[in-house]
Design a protein around this nucleic acid. Structure first.
Lengths: 379, 379
DNA sequence: TAAGCTAACGCAACCGGTTGCGTAGACAAA
DNA sequence: TTTGTCTACGCAACCGGTTGCGTTAGCTTA
């Protein structure tokens, strides 16, 4: 319970007056007796197997009988029991998404806007493949692998989508060892010794190219002292974006100044504080590349508070393409990730693995799109 | 596929060169042969039933035997098959969340930031009750009820959480008729004829009180011509917020001017365009209550573009308490909804229903919290 | 030593579908 | 009438656990 005031329905306006006791008496028995195939068979005067076949439109059952049984089933509101079906087929037609963003204590502050977009893509594509989607919180430390054992070993799902990939991610070795079907959102095991033999597909947004393109955009505007704020060393996406930044500098023959490449947390507050520091330098940078839009928000607010006008002279660029970027003042230049698309593709790849027919091209790179707005271009 | 450029891994930098063909050969057989209880029984030289009991720490099995079997199971990496268990127990220990926000085409523009917070609360609480969470897209029209039939009738989940409640929501009657366990995020069937007999719990944020408090905040600042932008007539939350606005006016003996209460879509663009109109009036309102934070963003941008300073003289207030509100210029006064908390409570309520022991108080109102920022107060 | 009791475990049915195989019955051909 | 064929459907095992009840071995008690 939080400190939120919670009042009861009886105190609310115009609410029906129901106590828990009354409700307890009203609450119907749980509907435990749903019609089964055996029940339909009994009523139709045939064998279970005949019903099963009729419902699946097996041509060995004559059309008339089929129709009769189907009508009866519809009339009884029959729905096949998923567990029974799953048990037979040794499949559950379910895929799981494991995400850290579901944890309440990730320190990301408010919820990750990413996840919904990803989920929308996943849910949409999964539905069209007749798959259910299971949502699973990622655990950390000792219990991390236990999640996958429970979900895949226990057949809660047939396969799983991994996110938040790290270098030397030990989940990969574990999943391979147990032959648990999975796909990755994010680059795989290129740093594993057996990288070239890693057999599962992945899809990712090309973070390195995106960061390079963004940095080149700043360089093209004439900036020479470009700071890069953000990220730790934990996840691939952070490392890759930083690599893209350095790549752009190198291509432009600009020196890489480690003091300008600043590690940080992932909240807007980190962006705010670090930008304050940067602006207090004798010779501050003229542009800041924030590793995420959320960080960029803090960057821009710090500039605002310091009286620095964001635009061509002092440019800020973010990464992600979250909706909020266009509402900032000035609107934020950023690299938009096609998250929906990633979700769809991940499901397609995973379904292919589950069918045993991996796709022609198991490794999909999606290019982020540079969206130039006033935070670099001015009005 | 979008118009995004998609290139292949082989074109990416430093990527292992794997073709689909190679991968097809590498991809291990799906792990179909996981140990079963029968397998363990065979190896331990006992009966299936003994293994089953030993694994459940049944005291009728002597400690030594129990330990031996448990060790063997751990060594074989045994995980019980969920489908088999579910089939036995006539329970799946799974709850489903049905949400419109997962549809790609809801017209909401970018993804609903709500859902993640709600999901985080749900996932957290569900995990502590040992429940899985299934994510299901809401369908509309003809196929809407079919979703519930499939999920609950087919035993994909034991119960379901409904969102986006509407007046006369025919889903409620359907679920009651079939005795499908469910809880509501949002007010229930008070408009159903049998409202007082509706037996299922619900939890909701008190939208009416929130809107009233927000409006009273504006009135307290001296505003007399307060516009209310937003919402349609479809969902309870829209109607209730509007009702709260009117309630505050009535309590303050201010006239209700229908021209100031403007229906709209739910995107920031709607907020933008409607505010432009309002500002062009001969005698524009001095304050705007936007029905959601997203709309408020559009409102504030329109004011900015029109050269109207948002603050004490021209105040804007939103509703939701999304993280983005604090990043706006000026930061947005809003009513924060305790969404996480709602998620937790919904799960608690649903679990209670599934246990057959409904909670003492089945109807929970959570109060939104007024967060006053510079958009009404000034700097 | 036989009857009685309990601890320890096996047997088999069951959950709700699926499926390989067998067979009864209808009908045609010999 | 017998043999053969094909259609329409039944029988029973099976998926992987769970559970009520029965049985056996071992020990105590009369």
């Amino acid at each position: 319970m939080t400190t939120q005031e919670q009042h009861k329905a009886s105190a609310g306006p115009n609410e029906p007056q129901q106590s828990g006791e009354q409700l307890r008496q009203m609450l119907p028995e749980l509907n435990t007796a749903r019609p089964t195939i055996a029940e339909i068979a009994r009523r139709a005067g045939v064998n279970k197997s005949t019903v099963s076949r009729a419902l699946r439109d097996d041509p060995s059952i004559p059309q008339a009988t089929r129709q009769r049984i189907q009508d009866l089933a519809a009339q009884l509101n029959y729905v096949p029991n998923a567990s029974a079906r799953h048990l037979n087929h040794a499949r559950t037609d379910t895929i799981a998404l494991v995400s850290r963003a579901l944890n309440l204590d990730t320190g990301a502050g408010s919820a990750d806007p990413f996840l919904v977009e990803l989920l929308a893509g996943i849910a949409d594509e999964a539905a069209s493949h007749h798959f259910d989607v299971l949502l699973v919180r990622a655990e950390e430390g000792e219990r991390e692998l236990g999640v996958y054992q429970r979900i895949l070993g226990g057949r809660h799902a047939d396969g799983v989508i991994l996110t938040d990939l790290r270098p030397n991610d030990h989940r990969l070795a574990y999943l391979c060892r147990h032959r648990y079907p999975h796909v990755l959102f994010g680059r795989s095991a290129e740093d594993l010794a057996e990288a070239r033999l890693y057999p599962y597909p992945w899809a990712e947004v090309d973070n390195r190219s995106g960061a390079r393109i963004g940095t080149e955009h700043l360089i093209g505007l004439g900036h020479r002292r470009i700071a890069f704020i953000g990220g730790g060393d934990t996840y691939h996406w952070e490392r890759d974006r930083r690599a893209g930044y350095r790549e752009a500098l190198a291509r432009a023959n600009l020196p890489y100044d480690p003091r300008l490449c600043i590690p940080s947390g992932i909240s807007q507050k980190d962006g705010y504080l670090l930008t304050q520091q940067l602006l207090s330098w004798e010779e501050p940078p003229t542009a800041i590349f924030a590793i995420s839009d959320v960080l960029a928000v803090g960057v821009m607010r710090a500039a605002l508070d310091a009286g620095v006008q964001v635009g061509p002279a002092f440019s800020v660029i973010g990464f992600d393409g979250l909706g909020l970027g266009s509402y900032l003042t000035p609107p934020l230049t950023t690299l938009r990730q096609p998250i929906n698309e990633v979700g769809r593709i991940l499901v397609q790849l995973l379904c292919a693995v589950l069918r045993g027919t991996p796709p022609e091209e198991p490794h999909v790179f999606l290019q982020p799109e540079l969206i130039v707005r006033a935070s670099t271009r001015g009005y």
